[in-house]
Design a protein around this nucleic acid. Structure first.
Lengths: 174, 174
DNA sequence: GTCTATAGCTGGATAGAC
DNA sequence: GTCTATCCAGCTATAGAC
């Protein structure tokens, strides 16, 4: 709260005057970002395209939005460490679970039809999310061991959109 | 410290008597686990096998050790959030960076020789680590949205060893 | 609205009796 | 070694003057 007050050029008391509590401020900012990110991601899977195309769009968008809000993954992990229930509640409110289920069903039907190689949908889903999100969570570590500058990192993550897509599509291609 | 003292059936004062400071206690426990995990992982890539075989062994071992110590990823992320330098220092002491570099070189030479499909080694490396580690970090979330019980989760992660290996090898197969 | 001062609590760490 | 009591720092939050 002190850091935020400093940044805003005010003092802690005034910060509390505006937002009542730290919790309230946190929720406000968190879901402000959340409600920008979620619709963008939902849009990538709410089309009539094949899964291959959807995956491509999803990965690219996912990495884009995280790059624009690099603190979000840490925020979410912080939330999760204090119990996932509240977070899941918000996901349900935003109707993202049905969209996910729908995508999984399409995945299964394309596997059934032999359009893509068979993998367990839940694992494939975890694979996609993991490859997109994890590097940002582990950024300090990756940057330290690889010696990449901030500019190098940006370039690497830009490359990553295409590289991860290529990797996934290569894996599921028959 | 209070929770640990309670768990141990003593009080905070005695805890400080034994370990001097919270920092010291943390480091002791952290590197106790760390020094069990790292040698096991190093062993999987310190053989004369092809990368495909090494990846298979690495993924299986990685998921096994995390399952045996499910709190470790959170621990590491906590460490990272307070600056990666100290953590990287320990990695250097344990000689894991040369082993990693060696593996990357082998990867490049096999790609060059056409034994596996070409991907940027760093991205491929991030893909492997991400798919192994991230699900454990996001466990509360994944469990909540999928409604899996603790037993279901264990089964899922057991499956995952084979499923991730199959996925990676399918992706890099020519 | 905006500030200073301070209440009230928590958590790490130490002093000192036993 | 093990305890109680206590110090000290830091943080959230509020009171009250302006």
């Amino acid at each position: 709260m002190q850091d935020i007050a400093d940044e805003a050029g005010i003092n802690k008391a005034l910060l509390h005057y505006y937002f009542r509590s730290k919790e309230k401020l946190f929720e406000l900012i968190f879901f402000e970002v959340f409600d920008v990110v979620i619709p963008q991601l939902k849009a990538t899977v709410s089309t009539d395209q094949l899964v291959a195309e959807k995956i491509k769009a999803f990965v690219s968008t996912y990495i884009d939005v995280i790059q624009a809000n690099p603190h979000v993954p840490i925020f979410i992990l912080h939330e999760l460490s204090q119990g996932a229930d509240r977070f899941v509640e918000k996901l349900k409110q935003r109707q993202v679970l049905p969209e996910m289920a729908q995508f999984m069903l399409q995945l299964m039907s394309e596997m059934e039809a032999g359009k893509v190689k068979s993998f367990q949908p839940l694992h494939l889903f975890m694979n996609i999310i993991s490859m997109c999100a994890f590097p940002f969570v582990a950024k300090p570590l990756l940057q330290a061991v690889s010696g990449l500058s901030e500019e190098d990192w940006t370039v690497l993550m830009d490359e990553r959109k295409e590289e991860v897509t290529r990797f996934i599509l290569s894996a599921i291609k028959k």
